[in-house]
Amino acid sequence: MVDRRAFLGGMRAGAKSVFLWLLLGTYLGLGALAHDLGFSLTWTLVATVLIWAGPTQLIITSMLGTSATTVEIAIAVTLSAVRLLPMVVSLLPLLRTPQTRFRQLILPAHLTAVSLWVEGQRLLPDIAPANRVAFVNGFGAALTITAVVAVLSGYFMARELPTALASALLFLTPLSFMMSLARNSRHLADKLALVLGLLIAPVMAFYKVELDILWSGLLAGTLAFFAWRMRRSRA
């Protein structure tokens, strides 16, 4: 029963995490967005649990809901999700003991997103190594339940609320994602990529460039990368 206690401890830690509030705002907005773009409630809930990554869910919802091509969506999701790989890799040494089996790590890997990655590094060192997988599963469960309730609420609120409030709900998505991106930007490359992406994408969309999101992402990201490298080589 050690596992169950560790799982509950993880849930409590999740309920106290600052990410709970961020998730609440983000998924309220994503639920409202899915509603307004015509997705079913079931689709929205399945997407939340299966994807479990805010940026990917925003990309698939907004691009599938508008007119993007399937190739463009798949490439945009692939590129945006690469950041999950180093997160899983850096959490693994904290989770794995000599007794841990591979299949026990599949759920923690699925639950890995920026929330678990940041909080895991902070909290796991204080948890006994044998309890860490159960702790992480509990933590992820608390956040997933929050996100499911939030996305459900956002979906219904977009349908029932008066227009003024429903538009404020939809506005949560661009605001919360933009601030989170800015907060997570450490390098000059990240900061420039954010600013250039915000500026170049509308220009490409305005001129109806095909695969606009993809090209603007590659262009803005690559420009930002070279600016960062030039500054580094000069330093």
């Binding site: 907004s62 994408a201 999101i213 992402g217």
Partner: peptide
């Protein structure tokens, strides 16, 4: 660093399009 920059810019583009 490059992948992160492109990922950030893709998301920034999606955000900008939702606003515009």
């Amino acid at each position: 660093v490059w992948v992160r920059a492109v990922a950030t810019a893709i998301l920034a583009g999606v955000i900008a399009k939702i606003v515009l």
